[in-house]
Every structure is written in C-alpha cells, then in structure tokens.
Design a protein around this nucleic acid. Structure first.
Lengths: 211, 211
DNA sequence: TAATTGGCACCTAGGTGGTAACAT
DNA sequence: ATGTTACCACCTAGGTGCCAATTA
C-alpha cells in the first residue's frame, strides 16, 4: 500500500508495553465502478461476499509506550492482496470496493493472543483509531491519469516513469486535493477519540494480485 | 563480517526476557603479518593501542527465551570497522590482529542499561560464550588466494566473481580445513560453559575501512 | 615495501508502472 | 467491454571483490 500510513502517538504510559496493529474494514456494502467522463466512483451493485479478516501487527510490536511515542510509526511493510487463499499473511480485500484502515493500540496483557488471522480483541486496554481521509478504493489498474501521476511522482521506486521536467504543471494542486498525500502526520492520543471527520478523499491502491 | 556468526540456544526460561549481544575481544597482545611462502600468520610485534569497545546488540532484543530458542540467531547485520572515530555504531578493531567473537546472553533486568558504546555488564544473569574455532585475523586485503576463493564461492553477493565450473577442484577440502565454514551450528546451553577448545582455525575478515 | 582507501562493476533483494495476454 | 494477471524494464538499497591510487 502506497503511500504508507504513518502516525504519531501520544498519551501512552511510557513504561507499559503495547502492540500496535492495523486492519482494514469495508466502508459500506457496495461495489464501485469508475465513471470516466464524470471522474467519479459510482455504486455498481452490492459488495462481494466477505473475505477472511486479516491483521497487520506492526513489526516493532511489542514495545514500550516510550518507544512508540519517540518514533513515527510507519506501516510501509503492510501488503494487500485480492487472493482469498493468500498464505503470505497479507491483508485480503476485494477490488473495486471502498475501505477504511484502522490503527489499533493494544496493551500487551490484552494482546498476547494477537494473530494475523484472528480478529483484534476489544475491551479495556484496546483502542481503535480511524482517519476518514485515508479511505481508499481498491483497483487492479489505475482508473485515472492523475492518480498514476501522483504515484509516479511521489514513489522513489517509480522514478523510472517520471516525466523529466515538462508536464509538471498542476501537480501541486493535485496533491492538495488528495489529503492523504500531504506530508502532515495524524497524531493519535490514546485517551481521546481522534479525528473530526474531514472531507473524504479517495486513495487508490493497486498491485498485481495485490489490489 | 562474513560468514556471519550463527547460534542456537537452549536452556533459557521460555517466559523470561533476554538481550543477546556480541562483542569481539583480542586473542593476545600481538600484531601479525602473513608470511606467504609458509602460508602462516607470524607475530610481527606488539598489539596497537586499544580501541573504544563496542557491543552489537542483536536487533531482535529484547525477546522471550521461547522466541530466542525457536530460531537460529544470526549476527549477519554486525559490521566491523578500523576507524576509531566511527559514528555508525560498528565494532572497532585493528587490522592485522587476532580476535575472538563472544556471544552474551543477558537477562532483561540485568541489561536495561545495555548500550552499543558501553561494556557488557557482568554478574548473575549474564553469561558469555566463546567458540575458539571462530577466532579470526583482521585484514584490509586478503593475504591468500584460498580465502578469496572461499569468500567468492560462499557469498551470494560475490557471485559475479565466480569461476564458472572449472577450477572448482579442491574447494571441498579447503572448506573442511576452515571449521567456521562448516554448515553446523554451535549450540549454547545457558547453564553450562560450552565449547571444549578445538584446533583454532583462522577466519579472515575484511571490508574497506571495515577490516 | 606493505597496508589502506575509494571508486567501480557486478551481484542480491525487492518495490514501481507499462503492457500484452487472458478471464469474465 | 471491463477487470485481472504475468512478465518486463526500470528503479532503490545495499553487500561483494577488483584495482588503481594513495599512504605510512
């Protein structure tokens, strides 16, 4: 998933151990199609049947609150797939659906049975955070030239496809309109429910069998 | 350092947390030179003045005894240098000296002030293990064509220098004579002092400013 | 003379979008 | 007609020995 989700956390007990994890849940019960002439995603029927739920446990887990709060927490190793039989531990999603990533902060004593293939426990000592501006639509091929340009211009691994110099015009405005691309980080505060919903921006993810 | 040190550990308390670390200590107070016609390392004076001691803390630290015992513990990220002013946290050694790597198993409560630039604490809850067959001589350029061949034939990153096919004769015997290259792992048992000294084999390490 | 350094070509390992072929 | 896949060239990032130049 590019760009990767990145967060900062405050309000943890420095000496308490925590797991941090991410899962990705459907935004609604719909399947979408992209209408080129209006540049919009439109409902195209009901969602496909549910897929096995998966959890990405941040590889630094478990770690102390002090450790988590000292660094920017990046989920750049999280992988997506549309293969329901995946055995690589990747998060399984349907293509052409809308999804919401969620960050989970789990006190160690509540997360010792945490597993990539089991739902995240709930209750005291477990908090979930959703940032509405990170909602995205899954695809296997980009539907929109602006998204392709953003991907190419922002991802170091796509440098080989960059337009050298010309055609740069309009990029800044484009970045502005997709909130997730802004360099700012969201900050989670463990004791509060964060994030007054802002205007949702769709972020499109794709990769091969990975969506 | 190639080949990397790899160990298995048994006898830990599965539910206890441990740090695992490595340091590298001088074998003697001598400096060496390689005598080509006799294919031997000879004493060439007294050792250079001591360098700042450094510790490599295994990146999986701290972890439970269960975790440590389940896996082969590899030190393949450990780096050496001959630069006494190094600021990358590498282990500092003199070239043309003999060294002994040591593996340290440190109960978490005894290692919370562990640092790459501080000596390893000693006492109850800390055990050190040395394997005499891993003694090596530091160089900045190989002194011996057999060593060069071993390095090239065994290291995936040196594939570009391999002799395709011919000249393979004699490699197996060469591997045999350098104990450290054998695929076997040494097993540490936490409660025992391991390793009846075997015939020492010199393993030669080099890399640029890294020795 | 012997030891060391820095730049190089050559690898491993893996993350990109493009594109043609394939599937639905 | 649309969505998906497999393979490709092109990158990033970093670990090798080689070799010519430099240093002591």
């Amino acid at each position: 998933m590019f760009p990767a989700m990145r967060v900062k956390i405050s309000g943890l007990d420095p000496h308490q151990q925590y797991y941090i994890a991410m899962d990705i849940v459907p935004v609604d019960n719909k399947r979408y199609r992209y209408v080129y002439h209006s540049s919009k995603w439109m409902v195209a029927g009901n969602a496909d049947s549910p897929v096995p739920p998966r959890v990405y446990i941040h590889p630094d887990s478990p770690a102390s609150g002090e450790t988590w709060m000292r660094q920017v927490i990046s989920f750049d190793k999280l992988k997506l797939t549309n293969n329901e039989l995946d055995d690589q531990g990747h998060i399984i999603l349907h293509s052409m659906h809308k999804y919401q990533p969620r960050v989970h902060v789990i006190r160690k004593d509540c997360g010792d049975d945490l597993s990539p293939v089991k739902p995240i426990p709930s209750g005291e000592g477990v908090k979930a955070f959703s940032f509405p501006e990170t909602v995205f639509t899954t695809v296997t091929a980009y539907q929109n030239q602006q998204i392709t340009r953003l991907k190419i211009d922002r991802n170091p691994f796509a440098k080989g496809f960059r337009d050298s110099g010309r055609n740069r015009m309009g990029l800044e405005a484009l970045v502005e309109s997709y909130a997730f691309w802004r360099p700012s980080l969201r900050t989670l505060t463990f004791e509060d429910i964060p994030g007054i919903p802002k205007q949702g921006n769709n972020l499109i993810c794709k990769r091969n069998k990975l969506i």
